[in-house]
Design a binder for these strands. Structure first.
Lengths: 194, 194
DNA sequence: ATCTTTATTGAATGGTCATTCAATATTAAA
DNA sequence: TTTAATATTGAATGACCATTCAATAAAGAT
């Protein structure tokens, strides 16, 4: 068991890492830089995270937890209703909250590590399984969808959401952005049609 | 204008960079390592690519060109027919060729750079515009789709393809992989229905 | 109050990094 | 053949890197 001080410090360090990674990228964020940013010697960071790999692995957990944390209130909210209002629902799925709480650059940087690290891959996979499961649960609540294969539906909806986030991150123009969001929302609506 | 030697050397260097990045990741592939791998001093590499950023930028162009190169024959083939056979079509879209010719790890690593580099973002955007445009052209050839909004369709199809590639890269089990591919292919088929 | 564990510091290490430079070799142009 | 441009080499640079270590300070346990 780690003490309170230890837990706080760890959080502080990971958060500082994340903040710097947002600006400079993970690959340009050294332990020395994190230390400078937080006003502590690098050796203290290594006291809590013995290697750089462990530090990165903790950053990834931090990010994935955040994503889940953004998602959970949406689920709660929708769970409170007894049917899945497609508009509220898709509005939430494509809302900016996702982007705001986890920086896209850091996110995709971490994601690219799954191809060389089995543990990281598993962590990402588990996140997505959880997201799909939660979505399925929401859809199951909706009486209008009773006859539908909700497991399948949640796969189909999420593949659009994921593709959309990827594609939308390249779009600069705000009008164009909204236009595309509308297209993808409609696409989800199509799937939800009885 | 660069000489033949110059052009060949540049290609050789970028290719060596790519090969090492596949194994160790871009961030762990130094100019010295590339030099060692190709049997040349690092200074020669810097003779052709004055800074590391320029080297990376050229790696990205190399990758994006490859993606376009995989895609082009598919288009040609489909252009030869006068209608879009949905099965051939989706088989091709989800074929393994994409993954084989451009390593996913390197690809997403490069992609993550769009968030801190406007020029890279533009390059990726242009690639995707081109892909969508080509797809639209194919769809336009199909008489069965004459009444459909093919520009919209190509957006909707690609968002599935992109989401699928993202999601599928986390799937390890081959059976599960095929299962999911089938789901996403069906999803595209749905869109193509008259 | 003493002992033990944890937290923190700062200096030092060897290694690797991107980049520079001057010298030499090769090729192309005149 | 002379000249100019390009290609290639290898050594050197200082900056930064992750990591180690020994010493001190603070907190917690007994």
């Amino acid at each position: 068991m780690s003490t309170r001080v230890s837990a706080d410090r760890k959080k502080e360090i990971i958060h500082g890492f994340y903040e710097l990674a947002k600006v400079n990228g993970i690959e340009n964020t050294s332990i020395a830089k994190i230390g400078k940013h937080l006003g502590m010697p690098p050796s203290l960071i290594m006291h809590y995270f013995p290697t750089r790999d462990i530090l990165i692995s903790n950053l990834i957990s931090f990010i994935l937890k955040r994503i889940l944390k953004i998602y959970t209130p949406i689920i709660k909210e929708l769970r409170a209703q007894n049917y899945t209002d497609p508009d509220t629902f898709t509005d939430r799925l494509f809302s900016r909250d996702w982007n705001l709480l986890v920086d896209d650059g850091v996110f995709y940087s971490c994601f690219s590590l799954i191809f060389r690290n089995e543990m990281i891959k598993k962590e990402f996979r588990n996140l997505h399984l959880k997201l799909r499961d939660d979505l399925k649960e929401i859809l199951d609540q909706d009486e209008n969808l009773r006859k539908k294969n909700t497991a399948l539906l949640s796969e189909q909806i999420f593949v659009i959401v994921e593709g959309a986030y990827y594609y939308l991150s390249m779009v600069e123009d705000q009008e164009e952005y909204q236009e595309k969001v509308k297209i993808f929302k409609d696409q989800v609506h199509q799937l939800l049609k009885p």
